[in-house]
Deep mutational scan, measured.
Amino acid sequence: VPQRAWTVEQLRSEQLPKKDIIKFLQEHGSDSFLAEHKLLGNIKNVAKTANKDHLVTAYNHLFETKRFK
């Protein structure tokens, strides 16, 4: 089981690129989880459509539901 890579403050910070969060989610989330949160596909394309709040919610949801690969 992966550990949380970032704190809530870090997740919301401008310093953390959306692409980093997407990469983490794609590496650790199950396909059904990723599909549900519309996070499947090319990281660049996902970054265009997903806002930061959406990614933070998905990140927290992944750990709450433990839907890891």
Rank of each mutant, 00 (worst) to 15 (best):
T65K: 12
N51M: 08
F24I: 02
N60I: 15
L34P: 00
K66T: 06
K18W: 04
V1E: 10
R4W: 12
G29F: 01
S32M: 09
K38G: 14
D31T: 12
E9V: 03
A35E: 11
Q10E: 12
K38C: 15
R12V: 13
N60L: 15
E64R: 06
K23M: 09
K69F: 05
T57S: 10
F24P: 00
S13Q: 04
A35S: 12
S30V: 06
L40I: 13
F68A: 03
S32Q: 11
K69N: 07
K48N: 12
H28C: 08
W6P: 15
R12N: 12
Q3H: 10
H61D: 15
T57I: 14
T57Q: 10
F33V: 01
A47L: 12
E36P: 02
L62C: 02
G41M: 04
L16F: 11
L16K: 02
N51G: 09
S13R: 02
G41R: 06
H54N: 11
K19I: 13
D53E: 14
Q15C: 12
Q15H: 09
S32R: 10
A47E: 15
L34S: 01
R67D: 12
R4A: 07
F68C: 04
L16T: 12
L25F: 04
S13H: 04
H54P: 02
R12E: 14
K19M: 12
P17K: 11
K52Y: 11
V46I: 09
I43R: 06
K38A: 13
V46W: 04
A47F: 04
L55G: 00
P2M: 04
A5D: 15
D53K: 05
K69P: 04
A47S: 14
Q10H: 04
V8R: 03
K18H: 10
A50S: 11
L40H: 10
A5M: 14
L25W: 00
F63D: 01
F33S: 00
H28F: 14
Q3Y: 07
Q15K: 14
K66A: 10
F33H: 02
A47Y: 07
Y59P: 00
L62Q: 00
E64V: 08
N60F: 13
H28T: 13
A5F: 14
L62W: 02
K19D: 15
I43P: 10
K48A: 14
N45L: 14
P17N: 11
K19H: 15
D31K: 13
R4Y: 11
A35Q: 10
E14V: 07
V8P: 15
D20R: 10
K66F: 08
N51L: 07
F33K: 00
R4D: 15
E36Y: 11
F68H: 04
S13T: 03
K44A: 14
K69M: 05
H28S: 14
D31W: 15
K52L: 08
L25Y: 00
K66G: 12
A58L: 04
K44S: 14
I43L: 10
K19T: 14
K18T: 13
H61A: 13
T57V: 13
Q10A: 04
L40D: 11
E27L: 09
I21T: 01
A58P: 01
V1H: 11
E64H: 05
R67V: 07
W6K: 12
F33W: 12
S13W: 02
E14Q: 11
V56F: 05
D53F: 05
K19C: 15
I21Q: 01
R4E: 13
A35C: 15
P17R: 10
I43H: 11
K23L: 10
K38H: 13
S13C: 04
A5L: 15
F33R: 00
H61K: 08
D20F: 05
P17W: 02
Y59A: 03
N51K: 07
Q26F: 05
K38M: 14
H54R: 13
L16S: 03
P17Q: 11
N60G: 10
K38I: 05
L40A: 12
T65A: 13
Q3T: 11
K52T: 06
W6S: 12
K23T: 09
P17S: 09
V56I: 15
K69L: 05
Y59Q: 01
R67H: 09
E36D: 10
V1L: 10
K69C: 07
K48T: 13
Q26S: 04
L11E: 01
K48P: 07
E9S: 03
D53S: 07
G29Q: 01
Q26N: 03
I22D: 00
S13Y: 03
A50V: 14
I22E: 01
L62F: 04
T7S: 08
N42E: 14
E14K: 12
L62T: 00
K23F: 07
S30H: 09
G41F: 03
K23R: 10
V46G: 03
W6F: 05
L16Q: 03
Q15A: 13
E27D: 11
T7G: 06
K44G: 14
I22H: 01
H37N: 08
V1K: 05
I22K: 01
F24S: 02
T57R: 09
Q26H: 07
Y59H: 02
V46F: 05
T57D: 14
W6T: 13
F68E: 04
T49F: 14
S32Y: 09
V46D: 04
D31S: 11
A35L: 12
E14Y: 07
S13F: 02
H37A: 06
H61N: 14
Q15L: 12
E64T: 07
I22Q: 01
S30I: 06
F68Y: 06
N60T: 13
E9C: 06
K69G: 08
V8W: 05
L39V: 04
K38L: 12
K52I: 10
Q10P: 02
L55N: 00
W6A: 11
H37Q: 09
H61Q: 10
A5T: 11
N60D: 12
R67S: 14
R67G: 08
Q10S: 03
L55Y: 02
A5E: 15
N51R: 07
K48D: 14
L40M: 11
D31N: 12
G29S: 10
W6M: 11
F33E: 00
A58H: 02
T49Y: 11
D20E: 13
T65S: 10
D53V: 05
L62M: 07
G41T: 04
H28G: 02
K69S: 07
T49D: 13
K38T: 07
H61P: 01
I43G: 06
A58W: 03
E27A: 08
V56N: 02
K23I: 06
E64Y: 07
L16R: 03
V1Y: 13
T65R: 10
Y59R: 01
G41L: 03
R12D: 07
T7P: 13
K23S: 12
K66P: 05
L25R: 00
H61V: 10
T57Y: 13
A47V: 15
K44C: 15
Q3K: 14
I22S: 00
A5Y: 14
L34D: 00
D53Q: 07
L40C: 14
K66S: 11
S13K: 03
L39R: 00
R4C: 15
K23G: 07
V56Y: 04
L11C: 02
T7L: 05
H28Y: 14
W6D: 13
L11I: 05
R4K: 08
S32V: 09
H54W: 09
D31M: 13
G41E: 04
A5K: 15
R67I: 04
Q10Y: 07
V46C: 06
K52E: 04
L16D: 01
V56D: 02
Y59L: 03
E36R: 07
